[in-house]
Write a protein that binds this DNA or RNA. Structure first.
Lengths: 123, 123
DNA sequence: CGGCATCCTCCTGGATACTG
DNA sequence: CAGTATCCAGGAGGATGCCG
């Protein structure tokens, strides 16, 4: 943790890495990632209930993307009424761990940022 | 780094933390953060040249936001032609360090994600 | 040089309604 | 229950032009 980014050499790889971060750093993705990390396995509606303010559309879309990216698994149980379970893959777990540092940063420095904003806005 | 998020108790704080992350996890912010971390101090146009694809509007907007959030300093030199220098604050440096984990994750697992996508799309 | 203001376009994402 | 499909408003963000 010296704060020095990897200093990517290949610009093509750098671009891909940036795109990937842009994708996973999405608000809903991060919230669902955190939720599944904590709760383990949840069904569709459960996630919808526990992620404050998410629409059904974004929930479906985000889960699909996470599944596609190999971050989560989607298990369909052939019962009536239908039941679909979601859980993190090891890859998803590792991303959750990586985000942990940012989460802690935000928590620790929230006050400092709000202070800075107040000072800036006072001008 | 056990992958367990702080499990925020106060829902109001949790919301603020989420908003803050949403703000700083912005694409341009992350790129400028990384650039300033590496290069130290840069002027407006320098940053514009080195951040691939950013428009002047987004550059101004992002730098202003970073300044407001206490992540970067803006120094105006009263010379002709005008010269404005940007550099990270300690707070900005700490955020850069926090993002380091995500950056490393993306770099290390880029191939795995692309593999997962290929497998998903093959269906 | 380092902006700010304006216009205009595209895409995100919410609301709603319908299916297996 | 777990989606898919459609419509639509709002904001992100690019292009252009003007100022100190």
């Amino acid at each position: 943790m010296d704060g020095t980014p990897p200093a990517e050499s290949d610009p093509r790889v750098e671009r891909l890495v940036n795109e990937l971060i842009g994708r996973v750093a999405d608000k809903w993705t991060m919230l669902i990632l955190e939720l599944l990390e904590e709760k383990g396995t949840l069904r569709f509606t459960e996630i919808g209930r526990q992620v404050e303010g998410i629409s059904q559309k974004m929930l479906t879309q985000t889960l699909r993307q996470m599944e596609r990216d190999g971050l989560a698994t989607r298990t369909v149980h052939p019962v009536v009424p239908p039941r679909v379970d979601y859980a993190l893959t090891p890859l998803g777990n590792s991303l959750s761990a990586a985000f942990c540092g940012v989460w802690i940063w935000a928590e620790r420095h929230l006050a400092a940022v709000e202070e800075a904003r107040a000072r800036f806005d006072a001008l």
